[in-house]
Design a protein around this nucleic acid. Sequence first.
DNA 1: TCTAGCATCGAACATTGTTCGTGTCAAGTA
DNA 2: TACTTGACACGAACAATGTTCGATGCTAGA
Lengths: 235, 235
Amino acid sequence: MSMPEPPWGARSRRPRAARTPLSTERIVDTALELIAKEGYDAVTMRRIAAALGTGPSSLYAHVASKRQLDQMLIDRIVEGVDLPEPDPERWEEQVKEIGRVFLARLQAYPGVARAAIGNIPLGLSAMRASERLLGYLRAGGLPDRVVAYAADLLPLYINAVAFEQNVRASATGDDADPEDLRTQLRDYFAAFPSDQFPNFVALADALVAGDETDRFEFGLDVLVSGLAAVAARET
Amino acid sequence: MSMPEPPWGARSRRPRAARTPLSTERIVDTALELIAKEGYDAVTMRRIAAALGTGPSSLYAHVASKRQLDQMLIDRIVEGVDLPEPDPERWEEQVKEIGRVFLARLQAYPGVARAAIGNIPLGLSAMRASERLLGYLRAGGLPDRVVAYAADLLPLYINAVAFEQNVRASATGDDADPEDLRTQLRDYFAAFPSDQFPNFVALADALVAGDETDRFEFGLDVLVSGLAAVAARET
DNA sequence: TCTAGCATCGAACATTGTTCGTGTCAAGTA
DNA sequence: TACTTGACACGAACAATGTTCGATGCTAGA
């Protein structure tokens, strides 16, 4: 319980808050800070506004909606990555490397991946990154059709991995020991009736082996190798 | 505007509503009906309850939370798929086929994919499907490590595609002509300054070619070919 | 100094998931 | 048959979300 603010008191309090004027930039910055510190779910319009010392309605003068804000967050996240020139000799490694860079960015701001999935990124920074990806793929001598589809497929994979990692992390909570979960899951699999689930039982160990990075690298490897194979078959 | 129900009338009306008692089954059924008809976003606890002729609180006697309900939806969706015995000669086609089957199921209930991503499916139906997938991959002679990682990678891809398609569909609205969007996007790409974005300009046509099915099939092809290549390299 | 424009803000609205205490019905028992 | 018991169902309410509306105050120009 708290007394309502007396009107004459509120009068004198107001000017202090918004000394530096609001702007889209400042809103995006604050949102990203909050995401990095407390995760995406903690980032509500009220929370952003509070961090800026104002109320939620003030944000809507600079941002149309939360969806639009999400889009701006995505574009800001990929801003400033500088990617090397395409090198035809190393296209496979370069494709993998761009994947690693973007996953790292998405991991730094957990939850943004959810907004990234499914939205074709048309912001300037994102387009520059896509342009580079196209460059790497073309340098590899892949046919146009393969390049075009791959430019869709690779970001989809990266976003999905980031999203999955985020969901899994917030579902298990921060208190769980990953090693415990692993043995727990392996025992769960191994305990299945082996007449109905022979493969689960036989592979129980392999299924829980490897950490997130291993699995991500495996996926990158499969994708790049697959692109090479499909391209070779197509020409 | 509607008058509030008079209490004496409500008394006699009540028994009619819950003639057949509530149950987890009925809740899941109703939720899936609603999703198929109006999409995932329309499915709120209140909406489900209303469709069952009761209030939202009644659901919580049978369902712990909405998250848990989502999990049950996923398991129900994959229920009843019967998948053929593994055939070593056709493992690649069988892996692709299981992917198509699951994508179709996820498409029939738009929005459920979002709940499926990131959650290891431990329900009975889902486990049976995973067991089959493991069977196909082992029949292909892939090493255990590859089989185990692939069993993670393939569902991730399928869920991601379903999720992406869903987001894209609900973002553009149902009124948009996909052909219009395509030419619009192509012109957008083609209009970029070709000194900074040479690849976008050169590939503008290829980038917007192909429908959802083409792209999904391409991804399947890349993944399966990649698995074969990685496996061949590993042994 | 006065005025006009505009960013800002407090309060409110409609929805969401979820909880609490009460009411109601049906089966089991003396 | 009368009574108790226990589980289920329900209405109302709570906290939190994104978003909108008018009025309020500051600041720049005449």
